[in-house]
């Protein structure tokens, strides 16, 4: 679909968190599940929603809004859990709703403005504009904490 040859094509899954559009490289997305009740983990950080049963294995679910310090909405039937894989570990990301899958090229991406004080931006890898709307491309490795970090 791209004529620019050397530029890599990229497919993004876009979704809505606290009325803002975010996206992830679709290669890291394993599946999308409807909302189910999570089992809370004791003394967990507030963005840790709990765990759910993903076909017989225990999947930790993170509330992406809380992780991004956005106002957390009441969960409802339309909420979905995006199951992502990072370094062999599956994690669920609770978002408001999934919007679309869009194909872009690396050229369409812009680096985010350097606002290091903004904790939200530290997990945004780049920005892109689709249909006049700004979409934030998340850096998954920055979103999902490594287990050893958190265990300490």
């Amino acid at each position: 679909m791209s004529e620019q040859g050397q530029n890599k094509d990229l497919e993004l899954l876009t979704f809505r968190v606290a009325d803002q559009e975010y996206s992830l490289d679709i290669m890291s997305v394993r599946e999308i599940r409807g909302w189910t009740r999570t089992t809370p983990m004791p003394h967990a950080p507030d963005y840790m929603r709990g765990v759910i049963n993903l076909r017989g294995t225990v999947l930790p679910v993170m509330d992406l809004a809380r992780r991004l310090n956005l106002p957390s909405q009441e969960t409802n039937e339309r909420n979905v859990i995006i199951v992502v894989k990072l370094g062999g570990t599956l994690t669920g990301l609770l978002v408001d709703a999934v919007s679309d899958i869009v194909a872009i090229t690396e050229d369409d991406l812009q680096p985010p403005p350097d606002i290091s004080s903004d904790p939200q931006m530290s997990v945004v890898r780049s920005l892109t504009v689709i249909d006049d709307q700004m979409i934030r491309v998340l850096d998954l490795a920055a979103v999902v904490p490594v287990s050893s970090e958190e265990a300490a």
């Binding site: 089992t39 983990m41 004791p42 003394h43 967990a44 765990v51 294995t57 930790p60």
Partner: peptide, 23 residues
Amino acid sequence: DDSFYRAPGIAAATILGDGQIAL
């Protein structure tokens, strides 16, 4: 083991008849 969060006091989990996870 695969979870990024380790809860104190929790050894493992199991899945109940209703599909919910119990710690």
